[in-house]
Write a protein that binds this DNA or RNA. Structure first.
Lengths: 198, 198
DNA sequence: TGTACATCAGTGAACGCGCGTTCACTGATGTAC
DNA sequence: TGTACATCAGTGAACGCGCGTTCACTGATGTAC
């Protein structure tokens, strides 16, 4: 009759892992087709399950979308900060920027940053904003700490730099001409990481 | 029996005007709710019509979306160029940038630029890219001609500048903190139009 | 000017479909004794 | 160890709904003579 501390430990752990699988599937599909472009059915099928079980893990598709996007952006922010701590500001900055402004990041939208990929869709879902705002703040702080000390207004440059990265990916994806896409990415790159003078 | 040059001239002119009304309604609704978030029914109702008549004007909802977005961006590009020609580079640049990076532009998405608002959705519709690419090129050229002559690499700065404007609007819309939104817009503004030295 | 006819922009019922969500169920897992 | 029972993660049929699209129609407008 008495409730035990951890009954069905095996099953509970498995449920946590299943939840993670649903989030991973949703994360990829939402970024590939848009949140409105993917059904609960497709997400569950991609996770190797049937659609009915979804509501045992999430209260609604909207809740899944908000959690998945917040989680994805928070992970990206913490990856950037880890890179700064481990590699130092100079190398971290160039790695972050080169990665973000690469052709691979533009093309593989299903593994890309949520800001250029789902930003506009998320903007229409105010419930999802607070955790995204926190992640943006964290990214701006990491970037600001990576910028050369002697240059004034590091935070202002970090804010403009992040805007530039996000916008460049949006524009590069809209261009039907690969040469223009490359030009956009290169221009953004050299604004953020000025080519070292010879 | 013989076909006349302009039979039913009145009706034909009215049909052109109706088509324009449908596009205007779609333009506002798509930017407010996203293309996937608005039905043909809603567009026609907003235009003061019933949904059945839609297919007398457009072959599909996708065709409408592509045409509306291409048209909207092309108009914006030509507005910028007109401003440059009429006001001169210095004033045109500051007007374009101040307008784009204003709180009103961020908030009133139904009248805003399609790049930050529908860019990601349009990126998934490759059929719509070519005319958008042309408009982007035109905007970059106008911006490049507005930038101070003595500074080298005007085109590169224009590309990065446009990216920065687009990204700043995306980020400002994602932030639940108005102070952060303002900070983002201000940072982007001062990158594009450096405050005149005193 | 008047009348009969042709055109076609716009109407609204209907279609098949896929969506988000619910729910009675099943069957594997863990518990009690 | 063995057996009876409880739990609950996952199943799949079913729901009401709104979507994009089609189509037979109506009625206002313009044409022919």
């Amino acid at each position: 009759m008495q409730k035990r501390e951890a009954p069905m430990r095996g099953s509970k752990e498995q449920k946590v892992e299943t939840r993670r699988r649903i989030m991973d599937a949703a994360s990829r599909l939402f970024r590939r087709e848009g949140i409105d472009g993917v059904g609960v059915d497709a997400v569950m099928h991609q996770a190797g399950l049937t659609h009915g079980g979804f509501y045992g893990h999430f209260p609604s598709k909207e809740a899944l979308a908000a959690e998945v996007c917040a989680d994805s952006l928070a992970r990206a922010a913490s990856r950037w900060e880890t890179m700064r701590v481990e590699r130092g500001p100079r190398e971290a900055l160039s790695r972050i920027v080169d990665n973000y402004l690469s052709a691979a990041h533009v093309e593989e939208s299903e593994r890309s940053c949520v800001m250029p990929t789902l930003g506009a869709e998320l903007a229409r879902r105010p419930g999802a904003h607070p955790p995204l705002t926190a992640a943006i703040r964290s990214m701006v702080e990491t970037l600001a700490r990576c910028l050369p000390r002697r240059r004034a207004a590091a935070r202002e440059r970090a804010l403009a730099g992040l805007s530039c990265m996000v916008g460049a990916v949006v524009l590069a994806r809209l261009s039907s001409d690969p040469a223009l896409s490359d030009e956009i990415l290169a221009a953004a790159r050299s604004t953020l990481v000025p080519p070292a003078p010879p």
